[in-house]
Design a protein around this nucleic acid. Structure first.
Lengths: 236, 236
DNA sequence: TGTGACCTATTGTGATCACAAAAATTGACG
DNA sequence: CGTCAATTTTTGTGATCACAATAGGTCACA
């Protein structure tokens, strides 16, 4: 057990880490958000192990809130417990990857379409500014920044749908490919990437539901197909 | 706090309940399965509250494993925590109900279709026998038996798809309408029900993917439409 | 040098305790 | 008799401890 945590953000590596933000949150909620963020941007390598005491020491809390946060992430399939009762970041398989693509295509265009009726001009401006930062991260090769921005781009739209139930399913889906996507971009870089965000923003502006669904579908299909083909054959 | 648990099965109401089945399971795993089963068959009334110590006393374990089981069920949206930090069985809303129907239609026919290539004659026989018991429960007005059987009918098929990721999304979806469906059937009874299970079984026998997807879709659409129309207008 | 058994350290699990916040109850007062 | 405040109880949260199982390392032996 050498690398208990693949990467820890600087904010949590300093001596007095405590709960990252004490904004009236419970300890396990802070831990959950911290770990979730790490997983979404791919800070953990697929297959790497997680120990409760290790994270507890890193975050400066007792193992108790870690348990609840980890249990929650396991339920969302962001983490996985094997028979040994050891917790690890689930490795990707071709089969799972294909299911993730299907789920994304089945749910996300619908979510975007439902957002259309609630979206304001200010919302679209926010989304466009997020996309600008995504492009910048892409150009700079900032993989973590790109992933964080891409997440915010999609979920800023999806959250406007007011469909919490579907949103939960999609969140679980994203948690399952975060570590893998990071690994893929780490290998192939972000320079050759191109997304369909501009087409989506244009569709949002025009209120064109059909074009919006097409843009989201294309964005999913291309991005996932790209990293899928690039990496899956390298796995055992 | 009068009714901490809406209904407790006889097996857990006797003095020495302990962990229902000690089959090498951890305590929180036993608790999780027990609570999950209760939710799926609708033993809890939507909106009713859950207390950790209450369940702990009922099941004969310390509050500790209850915490983890409840946390897991909250992550699956089978339970819900409000700002008060109080846990309750989420009430149904028209909006949520519509999202559930969409998710079911988007995912379950696909899951059934994927099962088609792995299914054996013995599997189909098992499924047919489950359906026979479903019909029997329906005729007898045994709501809990009907719901348990209906769940087993669908998931015996879905599990054969070998698509754990999609299966997880569908399981979360079912957990969210279990309590509501039970309430609906409690009001309108099961006698007027008719499902499309026979059509699905016939499609399984013929290996007809298109007919299978149509049967599952029809089963979802009719059943959910039925209880949806019957109950939602009675809610506040 | 490779392989087995033994030992040590680490890990997840579950119980118990202490604490703060919220709810329920009780009481007094208008 | 209804309403508000003070008190008591209940509840979730988090820390600490004890225990069993697993993993990793060490040493002996072939």
């Amino acid at each position: 057990m050498k690398q208990k945590l693949a990467t820890i953000p600087a904010s949590a590596r300093t001596p007095p880490p405590a709960a990252a933000i004490d904004l009236g949150l419970t300890a396990h909620e802070s831990v959950y958000r911290e770990l979730r963020e790490q997983i979404l941007v791919g800070a953990f390598r697929p297959g790497s192990a997680i120990t409760l005491r290790g994270i507890a020491e890193t975050l400066g809390v007792s193992p108790m809130p870690i348990r609840e946060a980890v249990r929650r992430l396991i339920a969302e399939r962001a983490l996985e417990m094997q028979g040994n009762r050891r917790v690890l970041v689930p490795p990707m398989t071709p089969l799972k990857f294909q299911q993730i693509v299907f789920a994304r295509l089945a749910l996300e265009p619908e979510l975007a379409m439902r957002a259309l009726s609630n979206i304001s001009r200010a919302n679209i401006a926010t989304i466009a500014s997020i996309d600008a930062r995504v492009d910048q991260s892409m150009a700079e090769g900032d993989v973590e920044g790109y992933m964080r921005g891409n997440y915010r781009f999609h979920f800023t739209i999806y959250e406007l749908a007011g469909a919490e139930m579907l949103l939960g399913l999609v969140e679980s889906t994203w948690l399952q490919f975060g570590p893998f996507m990071r690994m893929a971009y780490g290998r192939i870089g972000t320079s050759t990437l191109e997304d369909h965000h501009q087409a989506a923003i244009a569709a949002l502006r025009k209120g064109d539901a059909r074009a919006l669904k097409a843009a989201i579908s294309a964005d999913i299909g291309q991005g996932m197909g790209f990293i899928g083909k690039a990496v899956l054959q390298h796995e055992s």
